[in-house]
């Protein structure tokens, strides 16, 4: 369409540049802060140009943590976050895809009830049932374990519905052809369905990895043992304990490290990310 409105075009770019700046500003300041020594903050205002302490700050945090506030090394916490994110993402995908498979491709008594039970979990965010869920986990002896960190979060109505939707769009004839070709249910799942859902699995993985990595409330209540801290919740504990004189350079270094993996995932897998985001909201 021919449209000659230089003012509007200019405005559009202006809005976008301001938007990008607002989005980037906090990260920039955080990164700058993480490159300075602790004393640089006493002068009053945060410095706006990089300091020279970057290797020291990140090195200390990654290998030693902050002993004064009982923070284990960030490498350990990031490892825990990684375990948690991967377990949640893979676990959710695995149990959702097989339950969607059962619901779509099998007929069995209780199928409708199972579907509804999964559906109503959509209406039960962990924030709503925090205390009783904590009790169940405690009674099962799962506090301060990786199982406790991940298994209670592993059921997923959203992922189940996504796979159900994917399976429903796969033509019926494909399954019929496979049966005539001598494939039983497991073979059909493995040889046909799984490869055909590859893109959806990848997109969902990106979303769920971010979801798992960013968990906060759940690790906060089920881990008291520092060896199971995840970085996202650890950052808060650090800010808390050092309330008297927050060591902002260390806190900001932690913040940068905490956001780095999921942000990199989004930037480098943007297509899958967008696909996953839009699909899971259908």
């Amino acid at each position: 369409m021919v449209e000659n409105r230089p003012v509007l075009n200019f405005l559009a770019h202006l809005v976008l540049i301001i938007g990008v700046a607002i989005v980037a500003f906090p990260i920039y300041v955080a990164f700058i802060a993480s490159t300075h020594g602790p004393t640089d903050f006493l002068s009053g205002l945060i410095p706006m140009t990089p300091g020279h302490n970057i290797w020291h700050t990140y090195g200390t945090m990654l290998t030693d943590g902050m002993k004064s506030s009982g923070m284990p090394p960030l490498s350990l916490q990031m490892g825990n976050s990684l375990i948690m994110a991967l377990t949640i993402a893979i676990g959710k995908i695995a149990i959702s895809i097989i339950s969607a498979y059962a619901i779509v491709y099998f007929k069995f008594p209780g199928r409708g009830i199972a579907f509804w039970l999964i559906f109503i979990t959509l209406m039960m965010p962990v924030e709503v049932r925090i205390l009783p869920t904590y009790k169940v986990v405690a009674e099962l002896g799962m506090l301060n374990t990786y199982a406790g960190l991940t298994i209670p979060l592993i059921a997923s109505a959203t992922a189940t519905f996504l796979f159900r939707q994917v399976f429903l769009t796969i033509p019926d004839e494909l399954m019929e052809a496979a049966r005539i070709d001598g494939a039983g249910p497991l073979k059909f799942f493995w040889d046909i369905l799984l490869p055909m859902s590859r893109n959806n699995i990848a997109a969902l993985f990106v979303i769920l990895f971010i979801y798992g990595w960013n968990q906060y409330l759940w690790p906060l209540i089920v881990t008291t043992d520092t060896s199971h801290y995840t970085i996202v919740m650890g950052i808060k504990r650090m800010a808390d304990v050092t309330d008297a004189q927050p060591q902002w350079n260390y806190i900001m270094a932690t913040a940068i490290l905490a956001m780095l993996p999921p942000v990199l995932v989004v930037i480098f897998m943007q297509k899958l990310f967008v696909k996953g985001l839009i699909e899971t909201e259908k």
């Binding site: 033509p171 019929e176 052809a177 496979a178 001598g182 494939a183 490869p195």
Partner: peptide, 25 residues
């Protein structure tokens, strides 16, 4: 053996794999 209206070819397999699938099974 059956031939379907929409062919029901396995989209992620090559033609050769499509033909061979039933025999492999």
């Amino acid at each position: 053996a059956m031939v379907f209206q929409n062919y029901a070819l396995y989209p992620h397999m090559t033609v050769r794999q499509n033909l061979a699938y039933g025999l492999k099974n």
